[in-house]
């Protein structure tokens, strides 16, 4: 299966934020990603869809070098990060530096066992920021961007875990935003949330793309259709099709994609 990455004129209007080039990934001897070539366009939302085990989360985690945390994992190829074209996977690149530029939000809200304020301030402190006024401003800005400020501004000292599920997830988004990342990774950010909280996160993602590039893994195809500009369909470690979301959901080029999105899979 060759990935289909030819683009129409609308796509090329947007500059690249990142690009996977001949990316392979191995968990020990098991090859989880096979020759992934895929662009990520700046200030756009790109969705990764595909059945469980297809490699979409594995791919997402390559971007912030999460796989470095476990021995035996191995990358091949490159993920070029623009505009400086840094290869995120290069051994010379410090994963901590990478994570300063690329933040991640997970499936289950995972606030630190700290106050709401400290959850958001954490990344700034790690980065070495100590001026109280700067941190105050950035915490407020991040909470506002995550559409949470109004709900928590009078209870910043309370534990993050006291918030509702949807609020906790927005807190995690605020935490991810506090360090001004260039790319935000979402790994099924709404699968543990009710429909209302899901809608508010989706709305938030649509607002955030004005400022930051977003890559999202979702099991909910309608969510991919609703919020993303580009969609990639992955299957057993390969990128089967990449294209403009409208095209993928109305007239996919490949039968495998069509079978999956129309529910003919399996």
């Amino acid at each position: 299966m060759n990935p289909i990455t030819e683009h129409n004129s609308r796509e090329t209007l947007s500059p690249l934020k990142a690009e996977a080039k001949k990316l392979n990934f191995y968990y020990g001897n098991f090859q989880a990603l096979k020759n992934i070539n895929m662009p990520i366009y700046e200030k756009k939302v790109t969705s990764l869809i595909g059945p469980s085990g297809c490699g979409k989360s594995t791919y997402l985690r390559c971007f912030n070098r999460m796989h470095d945390l476990y021995p035996g994992n191995r990358y091949e190829g490159a993920i070029e990060f623009h505009p400086d074209r840094t290869d995120l996977l290069s051994k010379k690149v410090d994963p901590i530096e990478v994570r300063m530029r690329i933040s991640m939000v997970f499936q289950k809200p995972n606030p630190f066992p700290k106050s709401i304020y400290e959850n958001v301030a954490y990344g700034l402190r790690v980065r070495g920021e100590s001026a109280r006024s700067v941190i105050d401003d950035k915490v407020e800005a991040a909470l506002r961007s995550a559409a949470l400020w109004g709900e928590v501004k009078d209870r910043l000292k309370e534990l993050g875990a006291n918030l509702s599920g949807g609020q906790q997830q927005r807190l995690c988004i605020a935490r991810a935003l506090a360090t001004d990342p260039e790319l935000l990774l979402f790994d099924e950010p709404t699968s543990a949330l009710d429909p209302i909280a899901t809608a508010s996160i989706e709305e938030l993602i649509t607002e955030l793309k004005e400022r930051v590039t977003i890559l999202i893994v979702t099991h909910n195809m309608q969510q991919a259709a609703r919020i993303s500009d580009f969609t990639a369909y992955m299957y057993i470690g390969e990128m089967v099709e990449f294209g403009v979301t409208d095209q993928i959901f109305i007239k996919p080029k490949r039968k495998e994609t069509e079978d999956y999105i129309t529910g003919r899979f399996g």
Binding site: F249, I250, T262
Partner: peptide, 10 residues
Amino acid sequence: KRQPTAIDLR
């Protein structure tokens, strides 16, 4: 009920 896509939607 089904939110059809692709060939089904068309």
